[in-house]
């Protein structure tokens, strides 16, 4: 009865179809207008007027060589940085969060503050602080673009933390790890075979956010004089704004595909159940207490 009342009340408070469409349409417009404007911009025929695909064709006819070649290098840098950042964040953050959750629950609040802190620090302030660190780092590890992954690891920390934390709260990791240990699993097996599979959604969400942040990052790379996709696009836009916008659109599309792929991984259906064929099913009452 209570459930019935609750559901009736829930339906009564749910927005109507028109309201939902309006909200969806409004949000969709916010995202669509800039993208459509970018597409429209790349199709313009300049002073002649009208639209065609000439600029798209020209860009790809040349195979992104010559003046656009640095963009490809920058894209490679950004993808490498994204992978590096994801590895740094996940390898450091996931075990740390699990350790704090299982063994040191009193440190949860401290860890949260530490992880959330970078969101309140403007990129320019971060760079001012990081510059001396990077100058020291350059002496030992060189000044390759990959070193940016350490700075990006800090900037994506709040987002990755939130994504994993939301998943972690819904899983009784302490009991699961204890159950696995009593069954003979060492800590590595507990992590790989039990905890990570159950935190997959949070980890994938964290990884996606890290990738998205890194692919779109400009300030830190620019101020530390490193080349990534965004800094390369700015350079291109100074000579050829049309090509820069086309490349930006392609980057957006790639990020969209990445989102879809990660979303598919996160919601992948479980494998179909397999039952050993040698067994004879028991009578329906054998299961006992289905409730």
């Amino acid at each position: 009865m209570t459930a019935g009342l609750r559901s009736v009340r829930g339906v009564a408070h749910a927005p109507g179809r028109l309201t939902r469409l309006l909200i969806l349409g409004g949000v969709g417009l916010v995202f669509a207008v800039p993208i459509l404007a970018m597409i429209e911009f790349t199709l313009r025929r300049g002073l002649v007027g009208g639209y065609d695909f000439q600029r798209w064709i020209e860009l790809f006819q040349n195979g992104l060589t010559g003046e656009y070649a640095p963009v490809l290098v920058a894209l490679g840098n950004s993808v490498g940085l994204a992978v590096g950042t994801v590895v740094i964040v996940l390898v450091l953050l996931v075990p740390t969060m699990l350790l704090v959750h299982i063994r040191f629950p009193r440190l949860r609040r401290t860890l949260e503050i530490v992880c959330i802190l970078p969101i309140s620090i403007p990129a320019i302030v971060l760079v001012v602080g990081l510059a001396p660190v990077f100058s020291v780092l350059a002496r030992f590890a060189g000044s390759g673009v990959w070193t940016l992954a350490f700075a990006y690891g800090i900037t994506v920390l709040p987002f990755a933390y939130r994504a994993i934390h939301a998943n972690l709260d819904g899983v009784d990791v302490r009991t699961l790890s204890e159950a696995a240990r009593t069954l003979g699993a060492g800590w590595a097996s507990v992590l790989v075979r039990v905890l990570v599979p159950n935190l997959r959604r949070g980890i994938l969400a964290g990884a996606f956010i890290a990738v998205a942040v890194v692919l779109g990052e400009f300030t830190i790379a620019s101020l530390l004089s490193r080349v990534n996709l965004q800094t390369a696009l700015v350079v291109v836009s100074k000579n050829d704004p049309y090509s820069a916008v086309i490349l930006s659109l392609l980057a957006l599309f790639a990020a969209f595909l990445l989102l879809l792929a990660i979303g598919r991984l996160g919601t992948e259906r479980r494998r179909p159940a397999r039952t050993p064929t040698t067994l004879t099913p028991t009578t329906p009452t054998s299961g006992g207490d289905q409730s």
Binding site: V171, E178, A179, A180, T182, L183, R270, R274
Partner: peptide
């Protein structure tokens, strides 16, 4: 360590591994 004590344990809270089927849970040990 726990993993080497050779004991079976049933917990108060439901402790089946959610990503594994009942059979795979039993196979885990």
């Amino acid at each position: 360590p726990t993993s080497r004590r050779d004991m079976g344990m049933v917990f108060q809270s439901y402790s089946l591994f959610p990503h594994l089927s009942a059979g795979e849970n039993v196979e885990f040990g």
